[in-house]
C-alpha cells in the first residue's frame, strides 16, 4: 500500500449501524434485494441460510451478527452484497448499500488497534475521505475463520 505512484481503488460502500464500511469492487459480484432465505439448521448463528441466486445456491451471512452487533429487522433498504472470494460465493446482509467511490490507495491507513471488539478483527484498514470514515473489511478473515471449521460441524 505504499506505492509511490498514486493509484485509485474503487470501493462499494455499505452501512451497518450507521457506520460506513467498504469492499473493493472487484470482490463484489452483485448487490441484491433480500428475498426468501431458507434456513439451514445447525449452522453458525450468523449464517442466515441459503438463497436461490439465479440457480446457484448461495449462503447468506448477516454481517451485523458476524461482527457481533445487534441484529436488525429487514427493511426496504436492506441489501445482500454477493461477494466472490477464493471460489467462495457468499452473500452479506447489510443495512444499506448505496455508494461506489474511488479513493486513492494511500489514503488507506492500517486499522486502529482496539482490543476486545470483534469487528476490529475483520478490518483491513480505514480510509478517511473528507469527513467520512470508511472501514475496509477483510473478506478472508470473515469467511475463513479458524473456529468456523470446529463449530460449524455437528454429528
Amino acid at each position: 500500500m505504499s506505492e509511490a505512484v498514486a493509484s485509485d481503488i474503487k470501493l462499494i460502500v455499505f452501512q451497518l449501524m450507521n457506520k460506513e464500511y467498504a469492499i473493493p469492487v472487484n470482490q463484489v459480484q452483485s448487490i441484491e434485494k433480500v428475498e426468501h432465505i431458507t434456513r439451514v439448521p445447525k449452522t453458525e448463528k450468523f449464517i442466515k441460510g441459503v438463497i436461490n441466486l439465479r440457480g446457484v445456491i448461495t449462503p447468506i451471512i448477516d454481517l451485523r451478527s458476524r461482527f457481533e452487533l445487534e441484529e436488525a429487522e429487514v427493511t426496504e433498504s436492506t441489501r445482500v452484497i454477493i461477494v466472490n472470494f477464493n471460489d467462495l460465493e457468499v452473500g452479506f446482509i447489510v443495512d444499506l448499500a448505496n455508494d461506489v467511490i474511488d479513493i486513492p490507495v494511500e489514503s488507506i491507513e492500517p486499522p486502529p488497534e482496539v482490543v476486545g471488539v470483534t469487528e476490529a478483527e475483520y478490518i483491513n484498514g480505514v480510509a478517511k475521505i473528507g469527513k467520512r470514515l470508511l472501514i475496509l473489511i477483510d473478506l478472508e478473515k470473515i469467511l475463513i475463520p479458524e473456529q468456523l471449521s470446529n463449530l460449524g460441524i455437528e454429528g
Binding site: H36, P41, P59, E89, G152
Partner: peptide
C-alpha cells in the same frame, strides 16, 4: 440436486438443496 456450495460444507443431516417451482430453496 444442488450442492450447498464450498462455504457450507458438512451440514448435519443435509445432503444438498434444490430449487422449487416458486424459486425458493428446499433442503
Amino acid at each position: 440436486l444442488k450442492s450447498l456450495g464450498n462455504y457450507l460444507t458438512n451440514v448435519f443431516a443435509i445432503s444438498g438443496a434444490t430449487i422449487l417451482g416458486d424459486g425458493q430453496v428446499a433442503l
